[in-house]
Computed example of a mutant assay.
Amino acid sequence: MTDTRFDVLCIGNAIVDVIANADDAFLEFQGLDKGSMRLIDEAEAVRLYGLMGPGREVSGGSAGNTAAGLAALGVKTGFIGQVADDQLGKIYKHDIESQGIEFLVPARSDVGATARCLILVTPDAQRTMNTFLGAAQLLETSGIDMDAVKGAAITYLEGYLWDPAAPRAAMEAAIEAAHAAGRRIAFTLSDSFCVSRHKGDFLRLIDEKKIDILFANQAEIEEMAGIANFDEAVAHFAGRVPTLVVTRSEHGAVAVRGDERASVPAEPIEQLVDTTGAGDLFAAGFLAGEAKGLGLEASLKLGAIAAAEVIQHYGARPEKDLKALAGDLIA
């Protein structure tokens, strides 16, 4: 199939992020594990929001952040995620479409409130996420535009969305539709929390050859492999997925495709402010390279550039011109 509607179609949680500063004492008093993500109900979301300091509301969600990075790099991008017919849902849809991303799921009035993530950023720039999934967890198979999936060169799925049953079934259906159309599936493990909950399913997807590009960070790939050694964990999965991409924060990233292996260092930054979205934007850069037919090293470089931009300000969406930062890589 040569008719491509999207270079990358992203499917994930449609979440509005509320970001506020906090100190370690606040996290300890609330019993929060710094740097982690936990799922909370609406009552806990209201309670914690009332205790947070002044916050900044920005549209987020892992795959949504990746879509924003892709669009900023000039890649034809679509997004699928469920919002409610409420104020936050309207904000989310506007933010997505204002970036040139096609938003493919109608808002619903029967799914409660639009999802939000309460993000506490400590002085060391670590982010602790408290996520109320709301409407996002009710994305159903009927909400997936399968023609869009079949028309996307790559469909990108986030592990965060694997927890609820309905979106999990929807993503499985999208995988089948994409592969039946000769397209590729990219999948991010998202968080060690997701790996610990769904390791069996993720391994099944790998063993059934349903993932063509797998994204992970060091903690996630080691958790998946059950090996507390980076190189050994990478080697454990390198031959099991066509393309493996693993990030290592300030130590850069590696990618393995068959007999080819590439690595890049992290991009230099002036100040580390907020690590929220670093992995999402890295994935955006790498997938932009894939969409443009660049090699592994150049795609990793694009990922490192995009990740470096987003960690130097609050929020998980790029603020500077990513195409300008990428320079000749995507000229």
Rank of each mutant, 00 (worst) to 15 (best):
D33V: 07
F29I: 03
D163L: 10
E250R: 07
G35M: 11
A228W: 10
D231A: 08
T77M: 10
K210R: 13
R38L: 15
Q30Y: 00
H236L: 00
A71D: 13
A25L: 13
V75E: 15
D212S: 09
D231M: 03
L118S: 10
I213K: 05
L133W: 12
K150A: 15
E158M: 05
V75S: 08
A304Q: 04
A84H: 10
P268H: 09
A135L: 04
T128D: 10
I40A: 12
E250T: 02
L9I: 03
K209I: 00
A135G: 05
F286K: 12
K320M: 15
G200I: 08
I175L: 01
G78L: 01
L272F: 06
R204P: 03
H236N: 00
A304P: 09
L294W: 11
I211G: 03
A233F: 00
D17R: 02
L189T: 06
L214W: 07
I19T: 14
D321G: 02
A43W: 02
I11H: 07
R127N: 10
N65C: 08
G239C: 12
Q99C: 06
T276W: 09
I15W: 13
L32E: 13
E172Q: 03
E223R: 12
L161F: 10
V111H: 09
S263L: 09
K323D: 15
K209C: 01
Y92A: 02
